[in-house]
Nucleic acid binder design. Structure first.
Length: 498
RNA sequence: GGGCCUGUAACUCAGUGGCAGAGUAUCUGACUUUUAAUCAGAGAGUCGAUGGUUCGAAUCCAUCCAGGCUCACCA
């Protein structure tokens, strides 16, 4: 406490000194002519021409040496050494230079040159304060050893990094890289869909009913209407209304909210893309998924093979397609194709798989799959033929009333996407939602509710449609080599302090 | 929610019952080509919080708070 006061005190005093010199430490204008990256990129040109340039950035290192000082200044394109000499900037300006602290924003007017030690630098003819910082930034020092950057005293306390993400971004360059990659991926996804005639839309986040997934919602309240509203748990039901409305290809990229546990692949709010394509089915969705992910990988990473922490993930088409029941049989030798509840239950008990009171054979099959098969699906795999019982929005598989035309995409043992040949039979859909509703009454808090408005829309007619949802955060994790979802969400959910 | 682990200076960390420590950062002094600058000196702490054991607690015990990993939960 005393200590931070002391550190604060010093900076505030310097701030006052700057003001006393008649200088505004937070000026309205700056005069940057070049970004640092440009100086580095066209080094020869700037060295040859000796032209006047003005850069601006944060001061992140300072080596003062009496009447001369070397600093490192960085902007979002790079970092460069500055050289400030009393004889060059003049006595008055040098006094100002002395009032800079690490972290302050600085404008440097000068020209490029190479120091005696061979470092490409900017020789200042004038420095200007663009903004004084009052709190000291943690200091991370770097040294190049054998061409590799070694960093000292890195800012890596995980809690601090997430709570003060601005510091994390400033001090850990790879963190910024992750979020830049994320941005590029989403842009690339948009480009891909836009080029195929998809229309991007925004649907309500505050909804009078929630649906489209099995999950518990967050509840809020609208004062004027005096009604409870739910934060959406999926985008599905509103996007299908738009398919009914004749937007034949539609997508939305947005946040979903699920009031459930958090771990390294779950955050209460997370980003999804959902897309729906009229006159298409599950097979079209598989091809589209392959094409889209491959497109993003090529565009953003420039590769078809991802190296995920040493595991090679091959994205080249076609990806594996396998039926859930076949995979279970392969992995365990257990054949559940007859949906014999007693038999399946016995298998679960034998393998200590928890059986929820509302679970039927389909739910148990999914559980068995989750335990025995999921973690083994490392290369991209479309798992198809889901039990109808756990797929209330998917169309039945022709020839087998117990299964649906649905896939989930698995990579690296995690689920990345979910798609159906969408159920467009309004009467069937009503029955399925009502069955879900019964499960709710029996205590399944994650079962769907009956959305009459959605059912009415279906009665007006939804064309045959293929739909797909992909978890964006997880895809970013895959592309950036992160094992925690918190690393790809700028401000992940944390418990409030105190 | 269970198990394991972590919390000490602004940052990174040592310290396992006997005076609260180091490096960096900060401050003072020296230094007109340094680059983890260097050299000399100084200041800086509610040892996560509360309670207990003890002559004595950062250290042992209990509870709580925050975080991490993991299991459970979770499309």
């Amino acid at each position: 406490m005393e200590n931070i006061n002391q550190l604060l005190q010093v900076r505030r005093e310097k701030l006052e000194k700057v003001r006393k010199l008649g200088i505004n430490p937070y000026p309205n204008r700056c005069k940057r002519t070049h970004k640092i990256g440009e100086l580095i990129e066209k080094k020869d040109k700037f060295l040859e021409s000796g032209e006047k340039i003005i850069i601006a950035g944060r001061l992140n290192a300072m080596r003062r040496q009496g009447k001369v000082g070397f600093g490192n200044v960085s902007d979002d394109t790079g970092k460069i050494q500055i050289f400030v000499r009393k004889d060059n900037v003049g006595e008055e300006n040098y006094e100002i230079f002395k009032l800079f602290d690490l972290g302050d924003f600085m404008q440097i007017e000068g020209d490029c040159f190479v120091t005696r030690m061979g470092e490409y630098s900017v020789r200042a003819s004038m420095v200007t304060m663009l903004g004084k910082t009052l709190l000291p930034l943690p200091v991370v020092k770097e040294k190049v050893v054998d061409g590799k950057v070694e960093r000292y005293d890195e800012f890596h306390d995980i809690e601090l990094r997430y709570r003060k993400r601005y510091l994390d971004l400033l001090l850990n360059p790879e963190v910024k890289d992750t979020f830049v990659t994320r941005s590029k991926m989403i842009k690339s996804m948009r480009d891909f869909l836009d080029a195929r005639g998809f229309v991007e839309v925004e649907t309500p986040i505050l909804q009078p009913l929630y649906g489209g997934a099995n999950a518990r919602p967050f509840v809020s309240h609208h004062n004027t209407l005096d009604v409870d509203l739910y934060l959406r748990i999926a985008l599905e039901l509103y996007l299908k209304r738009l398919i009914v409305g004749g937007i034949e290809r539609v997508y939305e990229i947005g946040k979903n909210f699920r009031n459930e546990g958090m771990d390294r692949t779950h955050n209460p709010e997370f980003s999804m893309i959902e897309l729906y394509q009229s006159y298409a089915d599950i097979n079209d969705m598989m091809e589209l998924t392959e094409d889209m992910v491959l497109h993003i990988a090529k565009e953003v990473l420039g590769t078809e093979v991802i190296d995920f922490l040493g595991t090679e993930i091959q994205l080249k088409k076609p990806w594996c397609r396998a039926a859930m029941l076949d995979l279970i049989k392969e992995e365990t030798g257990f054949d559940a194709a007859d949906f014999d509840f007693v038999k399946i239950k016995a298998f679960c008990t034998e393998h200590e798989i928890e059986i929820e009171p509302t679970a039927g054979p389909g739910k148990l099959i999914e559980e068995i799959f989750g335990v025995f098969v999921e973690p083994k699906l490392i290369q991209p795999t479309f798992v198809i033929d889901f039990p109808k019982e756990v797929s209330p929005l998917a169309k039945e598989k022709p020839g087998n009333p117990l299964l649906t035309e649905r896939f989930e995409l698995f990579i690296n043992g995690n689920e990345y996407g979910n798609a159906f040949t969408e159920l467009n039979d309004p009467l069937d859909q009503r029955q399925r939602l009502e069955a879900q509703s019964k499960l709710r009454e029996m205590g399944d808090a994650e079962a769907n509710v009956v959305d009459e408005d959605f059912l009415e829309a279906l009665e007006y007619g939804m064309p045959p449609t293929g739909g797909l949802g992909i978890g964006i955060d997880r895809l970013v994790m895959l592309f950036t080599g992160n094992t925690s979802i918190k690393e790809v969400i700028l401000f992940p959910q944390m418990k409030p302090e105190e």
